[in-house]
Simulated scan of single mutants.
Amino acid sequence: MTEILDADLRRRTWELLQPGEIELDGLVATTAFDSSEETAMHQATVEIGDCIAEHAGFDPTETFVYSGTDDPEFASNQHQGLTLGDESFVWECQQLFRDGSFDVVFYFEATGDTAALVADVRALGYEGFGVSGNAEGPADAGIDPE
């Protein structure tokens, strides 16, 4: 069942990366956090966002998380990582509650080695996989460091 859900999430993530003004890749991080663990979910989002920032060449201390609470265009579980200086885009994510726990889908500019990013996110203790926005289709879009 998990493989079917992951394939569906990979497909939906790939579709969201198409077409774009900039070339994007994605990262799906699965957690064991349920709906009562909001603080831990936020910390995971920040931790993974910092990892994405580092891979994109940004100092994570020079970025912040914008949650859009004052913006009607944002969903309640949507967040962006932006730079402090000029609020440039670093990453965006959606926190999805699936099968009793949260998965976090991140989108970011495809400038680095997404397989290495996935390996680093796994080293932080999260399961997950990458999604190439440049793939021909969702079946070819999976990025796995193994």
Rank of each mutant, 00 (worst) to 15 (best):
T2I: 07
T2S: 11
E3M: 07
E3Q: 10
I4L: 13
L5Q: 06
A7S: 09
A7G: 06
R11Y: 07
R12V: 00
T13G: 05
W14K: 03
E15L: 15
E15P: 09
L17S: 04
Q18C: 06
G20Y: 01
I22R: 08
I22P: 01
D25Q: 04
V28H: 05
V28P: 02
V28I: 09
V28N: 04
T30W: 15
T30E: 15
T30M: 12
T31H: 01
T31L: 01
T31C: 02
F33P: 07
S36L: 14
S36Q: 14
E37A: 12
T39N: 13
A40V: 08
A40L: 15
M41F: 11
M41G: 12
H42W: 14
H42A: 13
H42L: 13
T45Y: 04
V46Q: 14
I48E: 03
I48T: 02
D50K: 12
I52K: 04
A53E: 03
H55D: 02
A56P: 02
A56S: 05
F58D: 14
F58W: 15
P60V: 04
P60T: 05
T61S: 13
T61C: 07
T63P: 04
T63S: 04
F64Q: 05
V65C: 12
V65S: 11
S67F: 10
T69I: 11
D71E: 08
P72M: 06
A75C: 10
S76L: 13
S76G: 09
Q80S: 01
Q80G: 00
G81Q: 13
G81D: 08
L82F: 10
T83C: 03
G85A: 14
D86Q: 07
D86C: 08
F89R: 05
W91C: 11
E92M: 15
Q94L: 15
Q95E: 14
L96G: 05
L96R: 08
D99N: 15
G100H: 14
S101E: 09
D103G: 01
F106V: 09
Y107C: 06
E109M: 06
E109I: 04
E109R: 10
E109T: 07
A110M: 00
T111D: 13
G112P: 05
G112K: 02
D113P: 01
A115V: 00
A115Y: 00
L117A: 00
L117R: 03
A119V: 03
D120E: 09
R122W: 01
A123G: 12
A123W: 08
G125V: 00
G125N: 01
G130L: 00
V131Y: 05
G133S: 06
G133F: 08
N134F: 08
P138C: 00
P138T: 02
A141T: 01
G142A: 13
G142T: 08
D144F: 03
P145T: 07
P145W: 04
P145S: 06
E146D: 15
